[in-house]
Design a protein around this nucleic acid. Structure first.
Lengths: 81, 81
DNA sequence: TGACATTATCCGTTATAGCGTATATATAAG
DNA sequence: CTTATATATACGCTATAACGGATAATGTCA
């Protein structure tokens, strides 16, 4: 599992997916990350470009980390390796 | 190569390292990312929490991607695996 | 359908990222 | 030391993330 994030939409999708996989509500994630439910909603919908530390806190609430990796072409399929 | 980012300091360190490895000046990265040299300086020094899309643009200027990965304990050493 | 739970949206306000434009410190080379 | 280059700071201003506090709009299920 390793999802590349190149836009706020990518991030929102990743967050929503992880949140549902954990059976959490936006409110639960919001509390853990010390933000409002409304903000989690906006971010999941890609409606806003959050600040880095906000992103980090929300990901942490979902037991996820942000990481920097060497760039690969879009559409790259790791199974080819 | 895979650097976990849990703070703006982590990000700044990763960016500076990658920039020097590419023999680029702050001004070069700034231009590619459409931001000011002063902002690159601030971010490298961990003096500010940048917005997500700013981070993405700067990383892209260094041929790096941001990614979401499952969280591991701090101090985890991949060599143990 | 009705009651309840969850998510999306709104408004005014506050906090702060990022800008333009300089200038002040390094750091390095001659 | 002097010059050139690179990085760090400064100040006023604009843009926008995030807030509190609701409420509206969906979704869920007996």
């Amino acid at each position: 599992m390793q999802k590349v994030i190149r836009s706020n939409k990518d991030l929102g999708a990743a967050i929503r997916l992880a949140r549902k996989a954990s059976n959490l509500r936006q409110v639960d994630v919001a509390q853990k990350a010390s933000v409002r439910q409304a903000l989690v909603s906006d971010i999941e919908n890609g409606a806003t470009t959050a600040k880095l530390d906000t992103v980090i806190r929300i990901l942490a609430a979902l037991d996820l980390d942000l990481s920097v990796i060497p760039r690969r072409k879009a559409g790259f399929d790791p199974k080819e390796y």
